[in-house]
C-alpha cells in the first residue's frame, strides 16, 4: 500500500529514476576514473574508428546540401539538420 502511494507521485518516480541513473553512472566511472583525472576523455590513440569517413558528422557536405535543397521546399520545417564542422578531433 505504501509502495503504491509512493509510485503514484510521478515526481517522486522521476526523482527515483534520476537517482538510479546517477548512481549507475557514478559506479561506472568510479572503477576507471578519479574525479578530476580526466581519464574519461577519449585519447588521440583511441580515435581510430572515429577517424573513418562513415563516422564523421561533417562528411558528404555536398550530398547533405543537395538533400536539404530538395526537402526544404517540400516541408514546412527547416533548420536543426546538424551543423558542419563538428569533428572528432581526428586530424
Amino acid at each position: 500500500m505504501a509502495l503504491r502511494l509512493f509510485f503514484e507521485s510521478r515526481l517522486r518516480f522521476a526523482v527515483l529514476a534520476l537517482a538510479l541513473v546517477a548512481t549507475a553512472a557514478g559506479c561506472g566511472t568510479s572503477r576507471t576514473a578519479r574525479p578530476g583525472s580526466r581519464s574519461w576523455l577519449v585519447k588521440p590513440h583511441q580515435r581510430e574508428y572515429l577517424a573513418d569517413r562513415i563516422m564523421r558528422l561533417d562528411s558528404n557536405g555536398q550530398e547533405r546540401a543537395a538533400d536539404q535543397h530538395v526537402l526544404v521546399t517540400r516541408e514546412g520545417a527547416v533548420g536543426g539538420g546538424g551543423t558542419a564542422g563538428g569533428g572528432c578531433g581526428c586530424n
Partner: peptide, 20 residues
C-alpha cells in the same frame, strides 16, 4: 546555429544543437 559535438566514447560521437 549553435552546436556542441561530444566524442562520448571511442565508438560514439554525439552532436546537440539548435537553429533560430
Amino acid at each position: 546555429e549553435p552546436s556542441l559535438t561530444w566524442t562520448a566514447t571511442p565508438k560514439l560521437l554525439l552532436q546537440f544543437g539548435a537553429t533560430l
